[in-house]
Nucleic acid binder design. Sequence first.
RNA 1: GGUGCCAUCGCCAAGCGGUAAGGCCGCAGCCUGCAAAGCUGCUAUCCCCGGUUCAAAUCCGGGUGGCACCUCCA
Length: 469
Amino acid sequence: MQIYDSVQKKKVPFEPIRKGEASIYVCGPTVYDDAHLGHARSALAFDLLARTLKALGYKVTMGKNFTDIDDKIIKKVEETGKSLEEITTHYIARYLEEMDALGVARADIEPKATESLDAIEQMIEKLIEKDAAYLVSNGDVYFDTSKDAHYGDISHQVGEDEENQSRIEHTVGKRNPKDFALWKACKGDEDICFDTAFSRGRPGWHIECSAMIEKHFAKEHGNEQYSIDIHGGGADLLFPHHENEAAQSRCATGHELARYWMHNGFVQIGGEKMSKSLGNSFFLKDALSVYDGEILRYYLNSVHYRNNFNFNEEDLLAAKKRLDRLYRLKKRIVPGKGSAVNKAFKEALLEAMSDDLNVSIALSVIDEMVAKANEELDSNPKNKALKKETIANIEFIETLLGFGGKEPYAYFQIGIDEALKTKIETLLSERSEAKKAKDFERSDAIRDELTALGIAIMDTAEGTVWEKA
RNA sequence: GGUGCCAUCGCCAAGCGGUAAGGCCGCAGCCUGCAAAGCUGCUAUCCCCGGUUCAAAUCCGGGUGGCACCUCCA
């Protein structure tokens, strides 16, 4: 397995800390709003990584956190009058629901900041002890970036330029402009505060992840050099979030946080990063209300995870058509039991995915398998061995890539209610009567009627089948 | 201002020094009562200019054009 390490800036062989195991921690969402397409892409990318490692035989432990204490959540509390818990549980549930729809496997560990306050406090205390962190007069605790000789190794982005420094807010008592808050003391009557040995307040964003990794991963998955194998997240987290995480952990534990760092590219709309400030966010829930989760999954995963992804509906439609082809093949071979996966097919897929998740190649391997199977079924529709092998092939696609698992008729008939279904069936039997009587005018009229209903039909050797167009 | 990423057929997108995968769209054919579906065939020399090499989309230098990070962000 080769993965691209964004710190070394190149593809490197994946060598796990513990033989046969792989621990992955991905930065999850801050739960103050609905998930957007970017959250989906990140989740999908690392889901693919986990699936690939599993298929290669690794015992994978996946962790994804929920940041449930944060300034933005507190702002939401103030705006809505709801409690912090009400807000975070709501968005966490929504997030998980939507990820389920995309076929993203649940993480093995889903830590929350609110459940990791003990670890956060411990880590900060340790940093203060080592003088890598300091308490200022208002109760804030800052990390002293000058105490970490390797600060900047992750993002390569920490220079001495004055221009840059001038952009960073100077807070009273900070030793260095780049020092960042580990703990924010309560100012006034804020009620979302926690008591600690150093002050009453709440954790900063960066320390949450470091502490959660130490609490939930390091003991079981790390060694004396690294806490986890792979740390992932969106490319925008590289700096400062991951730089700061790495620095804190290094200073607190004496070893590196992660052996590899992987970052996914953005989802863009019209060539620009999707973001709240640009007003071009696309919520996952809105996409899911129009498109099936499986199609969104296929589409969002069809571009290499490191590239930026320019979202648009035409491309999504093209992706859907490509997935349709797989399901049409599945229609031809189902029902039945699978035999063994075609060896060459399986190897080709694994080889593609082992190369830093080269999905494009994997998808082309699938396209070729589909075309070849269709060709053979055209010449010999009763080829049982081929059918069984193809069933197994598609099952393998499902485990490795997470699509193709649906019952094909269900796939093509999503969103069609029973009443419409009955109507379609009635029209279709009327049409076959007409066809039998060679009343083609009538049968074509029925087909037009179905087209108007958004239904496409196709006559096969086994009879007429229909799909939602 | 600093730091990166990217530029391949109408569109999406592989390629990682050895002579351009795959999909969508389009065209032609087979099949079909006609369609649809499926199958077959056809469709690019890789932003520009230099250089290295027997050989470059792939490496180096210089342009041009996009995008991102440096501030909360997947």
